[in-house]
Design a protein around this nucleic acid. Structure first.
Lengths: 241, 241
DNA sequence: TTTGTAAGTGTTAAATGTACACAAAGCCAT
DNA sequence: ATGGCTTTGTGTACATTTAACACTTACAAA
């Protein structure tokens, strides 16, 4: 169970709810003689272990933070600058925590999508918190760059592949689908036009079922059929303009 | 100048001309006592050198094969399966050429685009040849998978970023633009509609100049202005439907 | 019964996509 | 110089898609 000294993964864990898109970050603090030398935030990451591929490493990291194992995960870029751990702060950090890591560590970036309401980073991880994507704190290492790249790739992916459904419950309403899409893409859609387009997608199927116990007109329930989606030769996700 | 034993780059060198899209591959042959044990083809790749990032490694590989240094280059995926060098043939290969490489090598994939008519892989590299993308020979290691991923990513990229112009001469005709696009994307476009759309793009500018010495009506010359393209907040590449 | 809240529904005008055919300009061969 | 060959350049009509927009309905809670 030795780590590979020059190879790590960094996970950009995107949390989505019906209002916004956020990222899970770890607070990193360096104290000396009780005094806080500095603090900032970093992504969750870890070195790859011998005999493990990078995807398994990412799954391992995700599980250790969230407790879940079946999280939507996508590799998006590999960061290999020779001085990517070389910020002023980071040098101090590395001097205090030398571990067994190499000078030049390359990191394979993965992003994942989770329902941010389903994950309460508390118990084991007191210093782990959600930060809205448009209001990030100061970030360590090259993690700002990594998050930006991840977001860019996530949005491209979401527009072309049915990844929103990874995040929705099996049975959902069109409003849920719309709000989630809006949160991820950072846009808004016209409600009526959105529904019209969803109605044209064969892979989004209305059930004979309605919402219950809501204080307004109950919404129709839908499911997404991956089967139909694939049989239709991956129909265009027309509800994104 | 030591290599990093567990880290390599593989370059998918796409060659384009006005007719087709092809890939540059190296023939790999294992002989024993004058007898050919097997032969197949692989991508061009190399281990990363200490003090070098993966992009520099890819540039180095490209230069060693093509002689050029300023080639359009894009990282697209990192391959890290623990048994990615583990095909039957590859095990035999590794037994015969153990070098100093690790058991588990991860490889960062880059693709590049070159004018296949400008590069004649002959002199130094007798066993390097172009293969049309839809008629590839048998491939070693996991290089089939790598090429497929590269092609997928290339096509997505080409549709959204002005990479075709990396390949065109500074002054080009609309036909050239169209044929190149068609070759890369593997589709065809209606000639008139294509021209109509190009005409709408502010970043594609007609010069006061015509083709000369051609055995037909000479075509108007155009240039692509990256400046205008960026000032227009990256106008949509509307000539791809 | 009233109030608040989100769901559900259609039309129109503008823009864009798609399909399609003939004349013009130059070179070459005769 | 003429005719043949090749590629350029051009416009219209129809179909489809986008974009903007407001009122009624169903339910729960007060």
């Amino acid at each position: 169970m030795n780590i590979i000294p020059n190879l790590s993964v960094d996970c950009v864990i995107f949390g989505v709810n019906s209002e916004n898109l956020s990222v899970l970050l770890v607070e990193r603090e360096l104290t000396k003689d009780g005094e806080v030398l500095f603090s900032d935030h970093t992504l969750t990451g870890h070195h790859v272990i011998e005999g493990e591929n990078t995807e398994d490493a990412a799954i391992r990291v995700l599980k250790s933070i969230t407790g879940f194992e079946n999280i939507y995960l996508e590799q998006f870029y590999t960061f290999s600058d020779t001085n990517r751990l070389g910020g002023k702060k980071d040098i101090i950090w590395r001097e205090n925590f030398p571990h067994k890591i190499a000078e030049h560590v390359i990191s394979v970036g993965y992003y994942s999508l989770v329902d941010s309401t389903a994950i309460c980073p508390d118990e084991a991880h007191k210093n782990v918190h959600w930060f809205p994507i448009d209001n990030l704190p100061e970030l360590g290492f090259d993690h700002k760059e990594i998050i930006e790249k991840a977001l860019e790739q996530l949005r491209i992916k979401v527009m072309h592949e049915p990844v929103v459904f990874e995040l929705l419950p099996e049975k959902f309403t069109i409003s849920q689908l719309q709000k989630l899409s809006e949160a991820i893409l950072g846009t808004t859609f016209d409600r009526r036009n959105f529904r019209k387009k969803v109605g044209q997608m064969k892979s989004i199927i209305a059930l004979d079922e309605k919402q219950k116990g809501v204080a307004h007109k109950p919404a129709q329930i839908y499911i997404f059929s991956k089967d139909v989606y694939e049989r239709t030769r991956k129909e265009k996700l027309i509800f994104f303009y």
